[in-house]
Design a protein around this nucleic acid. Structure first.
Length: 442
DNA sequence: TCCTCTGGCACCTTTGAACTGA
DNA sequence: ATCAGTTCAAAGGTGCCAGAGG
């Protein structure tokens, strides 16, 4: 796809870089600051800028003293780290990374209801960069909406795989964002810029120390709703257990979720589904008590002609409808799933639909036997979508039937090389093999 | 004894995918 | 046969807690 291009010496080759920086996700090239001075002045005087999206929430946590759980298998961050970018060159590809930077040189300890320093920091492994899975992508895409790093996982396991940031418990960190311009010429036209967000300062812990903080997490994190309910029950039995100064807020879970829901002020599809699921969960629990098999036999059902999946074509799915689509009649089988709905884009990898895979030249993942890729979209079809070999997707409008991704016109669009697509679709980190040449994607 | 870490638990949300009816 | 809505379970996320280990 991309022909090999000689690298300037100041650019670290990917494998070496990965080793050095602890990067376990595919990324074209990481440019250290001051590396590769721009061969030409930037066309616009605007400097890249980054703004913390859910700043208010971060500040609330910060005022209490943010703690982040680290576990062996990796724990997500809450609040989620999300930023809005501006000042990027619209058509220049950028790689966006996050790093947890150690703050100070101390180890911390929770004592007498407050965090205090407790000796010097212990030497730990160099912190890894987490590369946003959509990297690299053109500037206009990064600027179009907030970038959400919801998939970051924090761990204290130094042997963990990619996609996780290794931290030491009882040490303080803050998040730093890196924006690296890249180009097809192998050397970026500009240097990496970084942004630090003091509001994101946190102490890595294996269990929460500050009860006010844990209460705030329970209040704000939708996944902790069960705990919230449980606590409420407990508190009603023993009101003296309540932690002072923890008034519930009117609106819960700002941050990435709220951003995903932007655009429609009403109830989202996922919320609706969640309510349904809640109800259904009770039913299934009853079934379990009755001794019925908890296994859903339907999920084991073989693909059929009826539902549009003969086991060879990757299907397009529309969130909430489960509608399946074939590729264009007579065309090649598709190897992509596309998921539309109400929230943000997500890239995901699926196990092979056909054990004997590979899925042919229609998947950029063809080089990774046994895997096919999936692009899940939640929200309006983004105008920057890389698919269809340059088809003007922004002209498609909200009518899904007019969308080549779901109408069958997509197949022929990806039958050739798909350079645009390749910039966005990356193989699963665990199967990623570093390329021999500079790359923008696969 | 104290501090930190780990694994299991119950409860919840999210996601994937089949079913159903128009 | 196709399309769109509904239904359901698995997967995965949450904090809490008891116990282990240094």
């Amino acid at each position: 796809m991309n022909s090999p291009v000689p690298l300037p010496q100041c650019c670290l080759p990917l494998p070496a870089l990965r080793r050095e920086m602890g990067i376990h996700q595919p990324v074209g090239y990481y440019m250290p600051p001051q590396c590769c001075p721009s061969p030409r002045p930037p066309p616009t005087p605007v400097q890249p800028a980054a703004q913390l999206e859910n700043k208010e929430l971060w500040e609330r946590f910060n005022s209490v003293g943010t703690e982040m759980i680290v576990t062996k298998s990796g724990r997500r961050m809450f609040p989620e780290f999300s930023v809005s970018l501006s000042g990027l060159e619209p058509n220049l590809p950028y790689t966006v990374c996050v790093q947890a930077v150690p703050e100070g040189d101390a180890r911390y300890r929770w004592r007498d209801g407050a965090w205090g320093k407790s000796g010097r920091a212990e030497p730990g492994p160099p912190t890894r960069l987490y590369v946003h899975p959509e990297s690299p992508a053109p500037g206009h895409r990064w600027m179009e909406r907030p970038i959400c790093f919801s998939k970051i996982r924090l761990t204290n396991n130094t042997l963990s795989q990619g996609g996780q940031i290794v931290l030491q418990s009882m040490h303080r960190y803050s998040l730093r964002l890196y924006i690296t311009p890249t180009s097809t010429q192998g050397c970026p036209p500009g240097a990496t810029v970084s942004f630090t967000f003091p509001e994101t300062s946190f102490i890595a812990v294996t269990s929460y120390q500050n009860p006010k903080l844990s209460l705030l997490k329970i209040e704000e994190n939708p996944f902790a709703k069960g705990i919230k309910f449980f606590k409420t029950q407990q508190d009603s039995l023993s009101p003296q257990k309540r932690v002072a100064g923890s008034e519930p807020e009117g609106e819960s879970s700002p941050g990435c979720k709220r951003m995903r829901e932007s655009g429609d002020g009403g109830e989202t599809g996922s919320e609706k589904r969640a309510q349904e699921t809640h109800r259904v969960s009770g039913e299934s629990a009853e079934k379990g008590e009755k001794g019925e098999s908890p296994t859903n036999e339907r999920t084991k059902m073989e693909p059929t002609e009826k539902n549009g999946n003969d086991g060879r074509d990757g299907r397009h799915f529309l969130e909430g409808t489960g509608r399946s689509h074939r590729g264009q009649e007579g065309g090649p089988p598709l190897s992509m799933s596309v998921h539309y709905g109400s929230v943000a884009q997500r890239l995901a990898w699926l196990p092979p639909a056909v054990p004997q895979g590979p899925l042919g030249p229609y998947s950029p993942a063809a080089s990774v036997p046994g895997y096919r890729f999936a692009i899940h979209y939640y929200g309006n079809i983004p105008p920057f979508h890389p698919g269809a070999c340059g088809a003007p997707l922004h002209s498609l409008g909200p009518n899904l039937s007019a969308n080549p991704w779901t109408s069958g016109q997509f197949g022929p669009c990806v039958s050739g090389p798909y350079p645009q697509l390749s910039q966005h679709i990356l193989p699963p980190p665990s199967l990623y093999l570093p390329p021999q040449a500079p790359r923008l994607g696969i």
